[in-house]
Design a protein around this nucleic acid. Structure first.
Lengths: 353, 353
DNA sequence: CTGAAAGCGCTAACAC
DNA sequence: GTGTTAGCGCTTTCAG
């Protein structure tokens, strides 16, 4: 049998409003009443009823985290676990509850989405891994529900948190150029994703800063999968680049597999750099030079931004770009080729990136 | 501005009670009224307010999933992502929402737990990875909240879903014995976990069925970590077992590393078998013979059992043990040593296990 | 088959 | 400072 404010009030000899004030830490309660009430609450183990509370306050204290149906890499890759861990850590700290929506199909997605958004059971939404041209997303934007996206969306007016894809890719280009590579190729992420676009642009920018250009022949795009990296590299091999930036570590693993098969040594015959700094980047042969992005922090910052949006501390669409940093390992031959290395390793993360 | 039952009633020319009946699919509504009301609902995009609904019904439609603070392997290992994916799939299907609690510290744990349990915002709880002697768990058991544990708990009276650890370990022992190994060792999981106990017992059982015993010298326990597997194997090497069952794949990776270091060939000089069938088991050198457990299914079954408990379809503590099966790869030399192999490969999963 | 009315437990004016 | 009073939007008797 569950206690109510009324019960506590009776036990403490005050009215339910006073108990409510005590529970909500309002000022206008005399110290002795306050302690008396807390004592009863402690003794009885009373907890406010969440439903009643949110019915009247219009707030649930719950935020939703959406993982769209098309994400099937949920298990292969620690990205989502890490992200969720970051969101969870922040939400525990902010006293928010976290409701997880993993959609298995577009059907589930389009069925659940509207119901959840309008039922009032969520104070806000964190949406991950949206793709360009996402309809539901555009729809959501019109709802009053505060939303934060993880990763830059392709529409205006939505708040988001993202890693500095442009800066990271630029940094890789500079690194490769400074090591003396002259014929640098790209295995790109799909330009149907904003990350793909940003990494491409940053890369081109970095090359330009070093007086180089990306030759169209030396660019093949993949789809983030290991297999696509493999295939892309097979296409690139005959054109003999001396270095290739692979815009995701997973694809880089595929690219390296193709190289191994072809008997091309890394970095002696060809340098490889990745992006993401997944665990596999440390254990690959050779260990992969790549861009580290702070995934858990991305999650935490999204939650915090969402909370600000909910509380009205932030009122207009806000973007937060988190700095990334270059992790120099062995796949670019940095240790052998140049003194840039030491700088690269020591450089404080997120400098000019 | 959000619509209420009253609004819909006005628009459809009926009372709010009637609209409520329509929404909740009650029988006693005339067909034409029913269609008229649905039409208005569809047109307006009305969704019932979750808080109001759960205030009066005492049900929230939300179930909590708890991952205790001591789980730090959340990111290394796809176990939890898979489990959650399974739970999520089932909860979407049952029209339940899933609230995720990842505790970062025991403090958070003991602070949040009671509040969440008594606030009425959860209809039930799935608790993962409990350890023996868990206090909070014992406490929870006394609350009215329906609970399902993932993995056998060490106390009575709690419903749970678990993989058949006993049967799986037994199966490994039989496999090893049938291949002719005579001096079979064990790197055990900690016996402070029920899985550790069960795998130990199953293993001993399987040996016994083949007329062998586990010599105490050939048993060293680890703590599920890669490092502990490595250390345990270093201890075992001088005692020269001809085969070792390592009670988790992660530990098996460590054990294999120790063997590689010592120049001991697998399976020529020593056979290794694991448990869990993690992705790494497929790509290790050599690929690891191990026990596959259905993780996503474990999650789904927990949710379904919990739902039954909530609905009162199941009223007493229930255990569900999911069958596991042996996956024969190369680390035990099955293909070379015996005809048992073909049987092993073809055997329908979950047979006598 | 449908409507009126009561109340779930809480917060937030509004009085005192 | 504290109590009284209205609801929040819904389900659920109880009449009709």
């Amino acid at each position: 049998m569950n206690l109510t404010l009324e019960d506590i009030g009776r036990l403490a000899g005050v009215s339910r409003s006073t108990v409510s004030r005590v529970v909500n830490d309002e000022v206008s309660v005399s110290p002795d009443v306050r302690t008396r009430v807390w004592e009863v609450i402690r003794r009885t183990g009373y907890t406010p009823n969440a439903a009643a509370r949110s019915l009247v306050s219009g707030r649930s204290g719950v935020i939703g985290v959406v993982i769209p149906s098309r994400v099937h890499s949920l298990f292969e890759d620690p990205y989502f676990p890490r992200l969720i861990q970051g969101i969870s850590a922040a939400s525990n700290q902010q006293n928010l509850l976290l409701s997880l929506f993993i959609f298995q199909s577009e059907e589930e997605e389009s069925e659940l989405y509207p119901r959840v958004v309008t039922s009032g059971m969520l104070d806000g939404l964190i949406i991950t891994a949206t793709r360009m041209g996402d309809r539901l997303l555009a729809q959501m934007t019109f709802s009053e529900l505060p939303i934060v996206m993880v990763g830059r969306p392709d529409i205006e007016g939505v708040s988001y948190v993202d890693a500095d894809n442009v800066g990271g890719a630029r940094r890789v280009a500079l690194h490769l150029c400074s090591l003396g590579y002259q014929k640098i190729g790209l295995i790109g992420a799909p330009t149907s994703t904003t990350a793909g676009v940003d990494r491409l642009n940053g890369f081109i920018e970095g090359l330009a800063m070093s007086g180089q250009v990306l030759h169209p022949d030396l660019r093949v795009d993949g789809d983030y999968s290991e297999a696509s990296g493999y295939l892309a590299m097979r296409e690139l091999i005959p054109r003999s680049p001396d270095a290739v930036f692979v815009a995701s570590d997973t694809m880089a693993m595929g690219a390296m597999r193709a190289l191994r098969e072809a008997g091309i040594r890394i970095p002696d015959d060809m340098a490889i750099a990745g992006f993401d700094d997944m665990p596999a980047a440390q254990t690959s042969m050779p260990p992969l030079t790549t861009i580290h992005q702070p995934v858990a922090k991305t999650g935490a910052r999204s939650l915090l931004l969402l909370d600000d949006l909910i509380k009205g501390i932030v009122t207009r669409p806000t973007a937060e770009i988190l700095p990334v940093n270059l992790v120099v390992r062995e796949s670019c031959g940095a240790h052998r080729r140049s003194a840039e290395v030491d700088l690269g390793l020591v450089e404080p993360s997120g400098g000019k990136n």
